[in-house]
Nucleic acid binder design. Structure first.
Length: 841
RNA sequence: GGGCGGUUAGCUCAGCGGUAGAGCACUACGUUGACAUCGUAGUGGCCACUGGUUCGAUCCCAGUACCGCCCACCA
């Protein structure tokens, strides 16, 4: 049957792909020759949130090129596939789908039922993703597919595996080594998902904002002489004031102020250090007084030089508050609404007032009239104080802001400025006093998933003490044990790791690895791989304190209605009835033993904590598997430069901390795939391209070749369909050269073998060119220059073989060299296929 | 504010010490034994600017301008 004029990609790709998959041609070690080295690549696991986009297609093409190239050379090759559970993103997608389908909400459904829903979502998405990868021709070992939550409790049948166990083991081990700790810290709080997120998940964006200037009156109507001087020390302003001026972009947080701070060198405020001033909001009869303190943080040249300190809602203020022992009053709930819990405002304000006075006394600032009495509250007691005035409770944060500004302005406590205005009718000018409000751009933090304004929030969270594990990760790259390309990636890597912050790893979500820690009612926590092990820790802990008693444990389910904040011991006959009564506490059993009530931490781990273990986790760690021995450390990681910190750096730290080895020898960082104009592909812009559409229209080969050709190092990758069409034409060109060969019977009696030794000049020449191209391609791929390899192949196949050699061969077929020409052409075209195989399989 | 990159043909990008390259686009011609998803020929560039090093610079160094990206707590 003669060959068609054009190559039918759709038919051929499906047929060939099926053959490969059935033959398990991509299994680890397939085609490996004895004595050859191992070559392993871990796929960056796609999130199970939907389908793959062009960036994935690009990323996976490069991995496949390397994998096929090494497999062809006879290396013991593994390309490890799999997917990522992607906690917050997947939970979000599932909730959205449920809402769209009119289903009940996650909370109505309960944790267990909801988690099953997410598993369903995972299964759907995973199927789509694997299908897409296979259409692309990805030569992963499909029998080894992994998942970052395989084997987790509650996983449905078919989701077995030990990734969950590995994650839990790492948490327990790191906890044991003191590298993971829990603490009440100011963290980034996402009010939409109602969870903490890490610094990396916050996107700071400049938005238009305002800065208000307000007067904080001095307590008791006190006054001082306020003097301003210019750079030469000449007095430019001298007036008697009964207030201190404060600037803020967030007036609603004034309610939680604990102090006003000025720089110690700021002479303007020296007379009032250690005095009290009044927060100008809230019911007039219960205005709170706060101390004026000094701290290095305020910049005397900015604004008024005085800063209000709201420790619970600002990272800078928190640091000041910690230094000066100023209480941090929390104003917002988990949804970023003004708190509505706790005692009424007047009582809370009274207690807070006592705190202020006690602070002054403790610092030796006591002034006559202040009753000297020790007064301290615990962190938990301070946190329980709700200083939101009753009429603002439950309001949205922005509504509260509006009201606070209005109230202060109405009361005349806004700083004013002179404004010239013109009377429209008479044309006369006059001056009037207006509130001083600056309009200016301010940096605002947004959640990368929720797109909602992030709130600094004082909560209990788990952290990885990254400072303690960062050094080996830095050293590995500095010494060249792990190489990052392009080299600019190494600089970025150093810059981030050298300034590493603690990593908040707990998330208030349901989808993820639940933290393996159990709490008792006495403030102890027990970290172990399961409840039995945690129980043993708890029993031995309590037995050491009370050797005369017998202890047993009872695990309290995380149910609604149990008041975990109360720690009143329950003296019922058994623990079970205690929980029925809605209490959380230890119980005395009939045999006299004490049942320690234990409750598991309901939070889950940051998804990057588990994907950070991808290299060892997919190879079966902690079991000492043969694959782990053979394929770890892995050869190359191919990934986008956008997740250098999220994933690459953390994998480096975690692998080194857990198994004391680097996760990979080389990291290849590529840019982000954009559309032809360089715009980010996004659903809202409508410029998202589905890789399958491209494959349907142009064939996977064309897409893959285009991907390889645009893989220059660094920068943005602009994807143009015109270019893909060009490479589709390239395939057709080669196809037709083969068709020409077919028509001249060059394949008859031909078998792939070594290069022939022809006499004709043209034949000798093309064999030389073939060898040269082979060397060029190998050299290019060795250096991860996919673009150079693609370019060399394009020029050889089109520019040499088709343009010249086929033309030279035409007359040769009529002459005495016909036989050797047929032989040579068969060889050369064979070589083309082989050389192209990594890119165009 | 700190860091990292970029600036080469109309467009997208390679090159990186010896007076410039590709693909696409464009122009003209073309059904000669594979290919119109093609062929042949061609148009098109003070390689951002200013200095310096050099026999010689798009390429090295310094500075300037503009553009991008990442990180950052100025109320």
């Amino acid at each position: 049957m003669p060959m068609e004029k054009t190559f039918n990609a759709a038919e051929a790709e499906a047929r060939i792909s099926k053959t490969w998959l059935e033959a398990k041609a991509f299994a680890a070690g397939a085609n490996a020759k004895p004595g050859h080295p191992a070559f392993s690549v871990m796929i960056p696991p796609p999130n199970v949130t939907g389908s793959l986009h062009m960036g994935h297609a690009f990323n996976n093409t490069l991995q496949d090129i390397l994998t096929r190239w090494h497999r062809m050379m006879g290396d013991d090759t593994l390309w490890q596939p799999g997917t990522d559970h992607a906690g917050i993103a997947t939970q979000m997608v599932t909730e959205r789908e449920m809402a769209k389908a009119g289903k009940v909400s996650r909370r109505e459904m309960g944790r267990e039922a909801f988690t099953l829903k997410v598993w369903e979502q995972k299964r759907r998405s995973r199927g789509t993703i694997i299908g897409q990868l296979q259409r692309l021709g990805a030569s992963c070992d499909w029998d080894r597919e992994a998942f970052t939550m395989s084997g987790a409790p509650g996983a449905p049948a078919g989701e077995e595996g030990n990734f969950h166990d590995a994650v839990i083991k790492v948490f327990v081990d790191l906890y044991g080594k003191g590298l993971i700790y829990r603490g009440k810290r100011l963290v980034n709080w996402d009010p939409h998902f109602e969870t903490a997120i890490s610094d990396l998940e916050v996107e700071n964006t400049e938005v238009p904002g305002h800065m208000w200037h307000f007067k904080y009156p001095l307590a008791g109507g006190e006054t001082y002489e306020y003097v301003e001087k210019d750079a030469e020390g000449r007095v430019t302003l001298r007036e008697v004031r009964d207030y201190i001026s404060i600037a803020t972009t967030r007036p609603e947080t004034m309610l939680g102020d604990g102090a006003v701070a000025v720089h110690p060198s700021d002479e303007r405020y020296a007379p009032i250090i250690g005095k009290l001033c009044e927060i100008p909001v809230g019911p007039a009869e219960h205005r709170r007084l706060i101390p004026i303190i000094t701290d290095e943080y305020p910049d005397p040249t900015f604004g008024s030089g005085a800063v209000k300190i709201t420790g619970a809602h600002d990272f800078n203020d928190y640091a000041v508050a910690k230094r000066a022992d100023i209480p941090c009053y929390r104003l917002l709930d988990t949804r970023a609404q003004m708190r509505a819990d706790g005692v009424p405002y007047d009582q809370a304000a009274k207690i807070a007032g006592q705190m202020s006075r006690a602070w002054l006394v403790a610092r030796g600032y006591a002034t006559p009239g202040i009753v000297e009495q020790p007064f301290t509250l615990s962190e938990a007691e301070i946190d329980a104080l709700n200083l939101v005035p009753d009429d603002l409770r439950g309001l949205d944060r922005y509504e509260a802001r509006k009201r606070v500004v209005e109230a202060i302005t109405a009361e005349g406590l806004a700083v004013t400025t002179l404004k010239k205005s013109v009377d429209v009718e008479t044309g006369s000018e006059h001056l009037e006093l207006v509130p001083y409000v600056e309009s200016k751009p301010i940096m605002q933090p947004f959640g990368d998933r929720s797109k909602v304004v992030i709130e600094p929030m004082l909560t209990d969270q788990w952290f990885v003490d990254t400072a303690k594990i960062v050094e080996p990760a830095l050293e590995a790259v500095r010494s060249g044990r792990t190489k990052i390309i392009p080299p600019s990636g190494e600089k970025t890597y150093y810059h981030w790791l050298e300034n590493i912050e603690p990593w908040c790893i707990s998330r208030q979500l349901w989808w993820g690895h639940q933290i393996p820690v159990w709490y008792d009612m006495h403030g102890n926590n027990f970290c172990a791989h399961n409840f039995e092990a945690a129980s043993r820790l708890a029993v031995s802990h309590h037995s050491a304190i009370h050797p005369d008693r017998n202890f047993v444990t009872v695990e309290v389910p995380d149910l609604e209605g149990i008041d975990f904040s109360s720690s009143a011991p329950f003296a019922g006959s058994d623990a079970a009835s205690a929980f029925e009564a809605g209490l959380w506490g230890d119980a005395i059993n009939e045999d006299g033993s004490v049942a320690i009530a234990m409750r598991r931490d309901p939070d889950v781990l940051d998804t990057w904590f588990s994907s950070g273990l991808w290299p060892i986790g997919t190879l079966g760690w902690p079991e000492p598997t043969a694959e782990l021995k053979k394929y770890f450390p892995t050869s190359v990681l191919v990934t986008g430069q956008d997740i250098l910190f999220f994933w690459v750096a953390r994998m480096m730290m975690m692998q080194l901390a857990v198994v004391d080895d680097i996760p990979f020898h080389t990291v290849y960082l590529h840019g982000l795939v954009r559309d032809a104009k360089g715009k980010k592909m996004s659903k809202s812009l409508g410029n998202v391209i589905d890789p399958l559409e491209i494959i349907d229209e142009y064939g996977a080969d064309a897409l893959r070749f285009a991907n390889a050709a645009m893989a220059s190092l660094g920068g943005v990758l602009k994807l143009d369909t015109q270019r893909i069409a060009g490479y589709r034409n390239f395939g057709t060109k080669l196809w037709n050269a083969c068709r020409f060969a077919e028509m001249n019977g060059v394949w008859e009696g031909h078998a792939t073998g070594p290069a022939p030794s022809p006499q004709a000049t043209a034949n000798k020449w093309i064999i030389g060119e073939t060898a040269r191209t082979l060397a060029e391609v190998n050299e290019a791929l060795e250096a991860f220059r996919f673009d150079t390899a693609a370019d060399a192949l394009y020029k050889f196949v089109w520019g040499k073989v088709c343009d010249w050699y086929v033309e030279f061969a035409k007359p040769l077929f009529d002459g005495p060299e016909a036989a050797e020409t047929r032989q040579t052409m068969a060889f050369v075209l064979d070589q083309c296929m082989i050389l192209l195989h990594p890119i165009m399989p």
